[in-house]
Design a protein around this nucleic acid. Structure first.
Lengths: 219, 219
DNA sequence: GTCTATATCGCGATAGAC
DNA sequence: GTCTATCGCGATATAGAC
């Protein structure tokens, strides 16, 4: 009996988190009410407060549910790359290791895709939003490790220029992950924002050329 | 007398639009109430409906107030470039003409800066948001003109690859315009997201290298 | 753990005096 | 053109029955 109760409890929690994830990804924190979340989840209104407390705590939990695995995937990709390389990994490999863990999750199914949409949307939110801080603590240390690896790959390059290059790359990734439909509209439907395989094949050489330009200006 | 009335009316309208612009840029459409807007503007609650009607119409008006001038600046930059060049403009010049009209506005004062923050935030919003359509009609034709110019500058390059390149560049611009504080945090305060002069000097060669890679793959 | 019922508040919108 | 007053609704949150 208590086992059944426990399993139901876990299932209820997940149903709420899944619904919240989908709706927050679609319309942002303020654009979604708890009532809409429970309607989509098929659970009672009061259960949200029972499991998660106030709305902002629910929002944080939606991100934190997947953030650990997400960041671990990035760090594992960097580790693998270092283990396989003689000497410091090259720029193209680092770019690939930085974006594959994100692009790959877009194909894992609707839940991970909603999570990535949510992260992309959140990446453009301004600092003042209360619920941003915990996220930054998880993701920024990972980004710093990649920046350190880029520094090794491009010795002698101005440090601030390198920060800017990573900044440019991160912006492009975030925009692609958001899947706003911009590329479908601009290409009159001939391209597909969810084709992250083709996107990756173009992304890596494009940004590698930019990073290499830092080390060897063409004029 | 009626002149005074008219001038006051226009001033009231502007006060509401300025306050709405600042708050929508900070927290998005759903994160701001009309009551907060009138509090910041120092005008009466009922005047918002008198001048603009419902909340979503006010939001559209905030964007449309500046969108015309903004888009015209882009097109003028492209025209100037074409007039000054023998033959089709080069890739670096096109990149500069595409991003200068945006970066430049960040230094024009807080109102234009708020408008750009709002556009950046909005660029990541998902299609379903009702109030996106009019904006797309204004900006997409301009973007198409730049894409056509890039196509002339890089004859023979795969068209979809070119779309992706513009997509990457646009993502990086949007992220920079949002000024989320990410670069300050990652650089431990040594860099400044509002220094668009330095950013531009790095942006142009970085992305020019990426575009040129499309035409001359390094391997 | 779940659901009913409700407290309390702030929202967008508007009617009508001035 | 501006302001007072208020309507009706839906929001978050919670107390308490089951």
């Amino acid at each position: 009996m208590s086992t059944v109760r426990k399993r139901d409890a876990a299932a209820t929690r997940e149903k709420i988190l899944d619904a919240a994830e989908a709706l927050f990804a679609e319309r942002g924190y303020h654009g979604v009410s708890i009532r809409e979340i429970v309607a989509l989840a098929g659970v009672d209104l009061a259960l949200v407060h029972y499991y998660f407390g106030p709305k902002d705590a629910l929002f944080r939990e939606v991100i934190e549910r997947r953030a650990g695995e997400h960041v671990a995937d990035h760090l594992a990709a960097l580790e693998t790359l270092r283990a396989e390389s003689d000497g410091p990994p090259g720029v193209a490999e680092l770019i690939r290791a930085f974006c594959v863990p994100m692009f790959e999750k877009m194909g894992r199914g609707p839940r991970w895709r909603n999570y990535m949409h949510l992260l992309a949307h959140r990446a453009l939110a301004r600092q003042s939003e209360v619920f941003l801080a915990p996220y930054e603590k998880t993701f920024e240390p990972m980004t710093r490790q990649f920046i350190a690896a880029f520094r090794e790959a491009l010795p002698g390059v101005d440090e601030n220029a390198l920060f800017h290059a990573v900044y440019f790359m991160h912006g492009a990734i975030v925009y692609a992950l958001a899947e706003t439909g911009a590329i479908e509209r601009l290409s009159d439907g001939r391209m597909d924002s969810s084709d992250f395989g083709t996107l990756l094949d173009r992304f890596v050489p494009f940004f590698a050329a930019g990073f290499l330009e830092l080390a060897q200006p063409s004029r």
